[in-house]
Amino acid sequence: MKQVNATVVSNHELWPGAYLLWAQAPEIAALARPGQYAMVRCGEGHDMPLRRPLSVHRTSLDGNVAFLFAVVGRGTEWLAQRKKGDPLDLFGPLGNGFDIYPSSRKLLLIAGGIGIAPLVALAEQAVATGCSVTLMIGDRTATRIYPDRLLPSGIKTVVATEDGSLGMKGMVTDLLPKFIPEADQVFACGPLRMYQRMAQMSSELRDKPTQVLLEVVLGCGVGACLGCTIETRHGQSLVCKDGPVFELSDIVWDKAVAPPAGRRYLRK
């Protein structure tokens, strides 16, 4: 992990309220694994004391790292306004990242909303190592679905929208009974309620090795402040350091709570 003075390379609104930001940060790009994150300093001075943890969305061989984020509050509002050439203070890569088992050949990736962010890096890595990848993407409506042209080639994509404007109508979780049985390993990133639904699936589906990426408010990112402690079946774990990726079956889901919605609630 390193604290890096990065430079914004580009920052575009990919769909309303979601931004794709590339920054030059060779120290982080060289080390980051899919599922890891960087703590991004937001705001000027110290008006926003907590860095925002953002999953590594992609990395490039020339030392750039991409973040895909939804504008949900003050920090991401500030981040959305960064322009090419602006400085960006990054601390990372942090956390454990996803773990593709050596025996896994067929991977199922499940993205709920902005949860697509870390799964694109994972899909790229999986394809590069010869795995077959099915990526399921779900959101409210077609305009919020990650553009096909930015996805790595060689993967199968399944889209679900709640209003039926693209792909299947409904939630991605509705489609899981059809897709999970064929997969060797499952990876998911999405809101807490998606994980809670997955944890309530039939035992046959639940027993498939499934890794999920958790979101809580983080303080330090290194296991020092204990702000992100959660209950697992093996005792307490730190999302920042032991996670953010956990086995679905390890989490005590009825004790898990989503981060406070804060200002994002007024945006709805």
């Binding site: 907590l50 204990l226 402690t229």
Partner: peptide
Amino acid sequence: RHGNPQPRLVETVGGVLNSI
């Protein structure tokens, strides 16, 4: 000690509330 339930951290303007 196990500490308090989540959420344990909330950012405020220029500050952080914690209930570790």
